[in-house]
């Protein structure tokens, strides 16, 4: 229990951030019209590509001869980038279709 108290006390700002982001997330997205369900999901999916930041940091701090980390890190950056780039482009394509029909 003592460890937990200590964890809580030292990471207080992080815990605030976590909780406020959860609340913010629910507030921001709570009233979505049906028409936007797919684009919102797809756009959010692209945002989850932010995991690429972790992959970039991992490769940057790897030793130049640590090929295990480098190769997997490379793979991580590719995967994250496909997720992010593809996600935003696909969402844009969808929204473009919605747009042009507004007369």
């Amino acid at each position: 229990m003592e460890t937990f108290y200590q964890f809580f006390n030292t990471n207080l700002i992080l815990i605030y951030l976590l909780i406020f982001t959860i609340i913010l997330g629910f507030e921001v997205i709570s009233k979505v019209p049906t028409i936007l369900h797919t684009p919102l999901m797809s756009g959010a999916n692209a945002v989850s590509g932010v995991v690429i930041v972790g992959a970039i940091l991992l490769v940057r701090e790897s030793a130049p001869d640590d090929y295990f980390s480098l190769i997997l890190g490379f793979l991580g950056v590719v995967l994250g980038m496909v997720n992010a780039a593809g996600g935003f482009v696909v969402t844009d394509r969808m929204l473009e279709m919605f747009k042009k029909k507004k007369k």
């Binding site: 951030l17 982001t21 997205i29 932010v50």
Partner: peptide
Amino acid sequence: NNLMLVGGILVGAS
């Protein structure tokens, strides 16, 4: 990384 945390949580919430 706070940014990853914020981005990830937003997607989780949506």
